[in-house]
């Protein structure tokens, strides 16, 4: 299994890297809609070489190097994404586990159906409704994610709660569903039955036998959602007027600021590839089958 993992995983990552880049370069520079042919790659090579040396080109609109804009924006987006992830991962998993433990009872129905409903809604729709509820009617939270200059950690966090909620809602459904189906499968398995039959307390069975096996697929899902998250960020950052990588790309695209657009998308590609790599790595570390295989 270790061998298989080692053979397959790098291939996946390579593909993930190649995908966004090849397409983006083709569309941007040459208005080609498709294509990963050689001359493109050569041209692309020099550009990437410059990129790796910190030269991302010069913005057409701002007439200034692109790099500081992209780095700032990436930092802002990461803050937003981090808030969303920190909220959604534990709550999503908890939701899925609770649903599975109450399989086909009303609580399961509510979590599953609710999760599914909010997952399929566009972010700007949930965003608008949340802004109306918490920003306009209750006046609990600020409606734009622009904190005053030099704001401290908690002020920034306060401004980020509302923008992170629509992302939270979309991801919640996915994560809860994966956790739920993982749990159901684990609860139904032979090893769980054995554990119950040998007289272990229910709590121990859940913690030591079921959860461990159930949550593995969930980790992969969380990582693959990074791709979604990037698309979501474009929308959310526009809605909340937040200076992140999504709104940077959006503004660059509208203004035909190609160097900015390319740098933004390449950055996203790298983030995506790194996230995929980390997820693959985490999965193989956490998977006891792979670990056991090595020890033997």
């Amino acid at each position: 299994m270790v061998f298989l993992g080692g053979q397959v995983l790098p291939g996946n990552v390579g593909r993930a890297i190649l995908g966004p880049f090849a397409d983006q370069r083709a569309v941007d520079a040459l208005n080609h809609s498709l294509g990963v042919d050689r001359p493109l790659l050569v041209q692309y090579g020099t550009w990437i070489w410059n990129f790796l040396h910190g030269d991302m080109g010069t913005s057409y609109i701002f007439r200034a190097p692109v790099a500081p804009f992209v780095i700032d924006a990436l930092g802002n987006s990461m803050k937003l994404a981090l808030v969303a992830f920190v909220l959604v991962v534990p709550i999503g998993i908890l939701g899925g586990v609770i649903a599975a433990l109450n399989l086909n009872r009303p609580l399961d129905r509510i979590i599953s159906l609710g999760g599914l409903s909010v997952t399929v809604l566009p972010e700007f729709v949930t965003g608008i409704i949340l802004i109306l509820i918490f920003g306009v009617w209750l006046r609990w939270l600020p409606i734009a994610a622009a904190w005053p200059k030099g704001a401290g950690f908690f002020t920034q966090l306060y401004y980020l709660i509302l923008p992170s909620l629509p992302l939270f809602l979309v991801l919640f459904g996915y994560i809860a569903r994966m956790a739920r189906s993982g749990m159901i499968e684990a609860l139904d398995s032979d090893y769980t039955r054995t554990a119950v039959l040998k007289g272990l307390p229910w709590r121990t069975v859940i913690w030591r036998h079921v959860l461990r096996n159930a949550l593995l697929p969930t980790i992969t899902v969380i990582a693959t959602q990074t791709g979604y998250l990037i698309g979501g960020l474009v929308v959310i950052e526009t809605l909340f007027r937040y200076q992140g990588i999504g709104s940077l790309i959006f503004t660059a695209a509208r203004g035909k600021d190609f160097p900015m657009l390319e740098a933004g998308i390449l950055t996203i590609g790298i983030v995506y590839a790194v996230a995929t790599l980390v997820a693959d790595f985490l999965y193989s570390v956490l998977n006891p089958r792979i670990r056991l295989g090595r020890e033997q």
């Binding site: 995908g19 569309v27 695209a253």
Partner: peptide, 19 residues
């Protein structure tokens, strides 16, 4: 196809609309 599926639709759309 897999490479294509890795890119969010919003990003593809942004690029296509620029082009």
């Amino acid at each position: 196809l897999e490479a294509f599926m890795a890119i969010p639709v919003v990003i593809i759309a942004l690029l296509a609309i620029v082009a």
